[in-house]
Amino acid sequence: MPFITNTNAKEQVDIFYEDYGEGQPVILIHGWPLSHKSWEQQVWKIVEEGFRCIAYDRRGFGTSSSPWGPYDYSALASDLNSIIKELDLKDCVLVGFSMGGGEVVRYLTNFGTDRIAKVALISSIIPLVKKKDDNPDGVPQDALNGIIDNLQSDRVGFLKEFSKGFYNFEDNKDKVSQAQLDYDFIVASFASPRATIETALAWMDTDFRPELKNVNVPTLIVHGDADQTVPIKTSGKQAAEGITDNRYEVIEGAPHGLNVTHADELNEILISFLKE
């Protein structure tokens, strides 16, 4: 199996990745608490349309190694940088889903845009999840604390129910199967318990608003207006207002996990952006 070792990490971190196709490289960065497998409906389309598609597992998730730490966004972005450098990728398109949007922005902040042509933020947490006085549409601190408490007391029990809200399951039973929920649970429960909690703290607490100025390449922003996990007003809408060169696409009725429920619509938007 292909791994890349981040030799600059505080602890050795081996990142698992899959690499398919030829052409301009498109790097897919998965959401929390899943793995690269969540991109199943996008990988084949990206390759079929003539691009090289690289999808990897965040440290602590999937088949990547699980160091004790750290799991802050600078550490996560350093893993992404190791992939780009080791594979000597140029003219890349970074695509971040949910918390993966944070790796995109922190990569641009820490490593610049020399190797980056475009970026895409899909159902992204960018710029800020948490409710604050100057972010009234964010998720209340009590709700975020509840997630951490549940992960600490009964992680697998929490994860068993999490996907229902991820997909607005009751409203989308015609678009997502019980088997998909079961699959997500298997993937998520396999992840490192510590990584699951520490990365949750990262996406909950990191305020990317000061870093939006570093997103200075063409940017695609896609969000569902029915997203109950990362509300659109605190994420997609603010990102579109704060990133200068962007294409903002709102998918009507789409939940957080629109890469599954609205895969055809997302793929059409993403491929159009890649070919622009």
Score class of each variant (00 low, 15 high):
P2L: 12
F3G: 00
F3E: 03
I4V: 10
T5Q: 00
Y17W: 11
E18F: 06
Y20E: 15
G23V: 13
Q24N: 13
V26H: 03
H30Y: 12
W32F: 11
L34Q: 07
Q42S: 02
I46H: 05
I46L: 02
V47N: 09
E48G: 15
E49V: 11
G50W: 01
F51R: 13
R52E: 00
I54K: 04
R58C: 04
R59W: 07
G60M: 06
G62D: 05
S64R: 06
W68K: 09
P70I: 09
D72L: 08
Y73F: 10
S74P: 01
L76R: 08
K85I: 10
L87I: 04
L94Q: 02
V95Y: 05
G100R: 01
V104R: 01
T109Q: 10
D114W: 14
I116L: 06
L121M: 01
S123T: 03
I126W: 10
L128N: 08
L128C: 14
V129R: 05
D133V: 00
P140W: 08
Q141L: 15
L144P: 01
I148G: 07
D149G: 12
N150H: 11
S153E: 15
G157H: 05
K160V: 00
K164S: 08
F166G: 08
E170I: 02
K173S: 07
K175V: 13
S177M: 08
A179C: 07
Q180M: 04
D182F: 03
Y183T: 03
A188H: 00
S192Y: 15
S192C: 15
P193A: 03
A200T: 09
A200D: 15
M204N: 05
D207F: 13
D207C: 14
R209F: 14
P210M: 04
N214K: 08
V215L: 07
T219S: 13
L220P: 02
L220I: 11
D227Y: 10
D227R: 04
Q228N: 15
G242Y: 06
G242W: 10
E252L: 02
A254T: 02
L258W: 00
L258Q: 02
N259K: 10
V260A: 05
L266M: 15
I269T: 12
L270M: 11
I271Q: 01
I271V: 07
I271S: 03
S272K: 12
L274K: 08
L274F: 10
